[in-house]
Amino acid sequence: MKLNRRKFIKRALITVASVEAFFLLKGSVNKINTSSGTAELFNAGKATAFENNKLYPFLTGQFFLKRFEDGGFLAMSIKCTHLGCIVNTNSKTGGFNCPCHASQFDKYGEVVSAPATRPLDYFPITIEKGELLIDTKKPIKRSSFDKSQLTYA
């Protein structure tokens, strides 16, 4: 099939119109972000209130706050990385189990047993005036645990 000028112009116009239509449609079904513009951080309280080597669940903030032996903090998402169910704490291993498809995670959030393929996401922590502020809007994906993910008081 040969492309002459007429056909070329016609197709170019159709392409431009479809791209335009796509963005119009996309824009018109978009929803307004209902959360207020300024990023609100979740305040978990004084850093000194948390004991080493203990796990504190914050269900309303959708994270588990873990303080390790060396005092480092890690805020892990409660959502399984497989298909988004809420994981439960496993008091025997100190890790987490997913009720949906039996994924298991250790205390660092790393996968012990499939089908999940990556560790639990974690949230950035900042410390201001001794209080832990967790940015629960920004889950960070990771492929394994390392020390740089910890925050120290």
């Binding site: 269900l59 009720p99 949906c100």
Partner: peptide
Amino acid sequence: LKSPNPSKAPWYFLGAQELL
């Protein structure tokens, strides 16, 4: 905040979930 155990997809998608 609470996933039932087990959490299954709608029945006609279960084949896809099994594959996964």
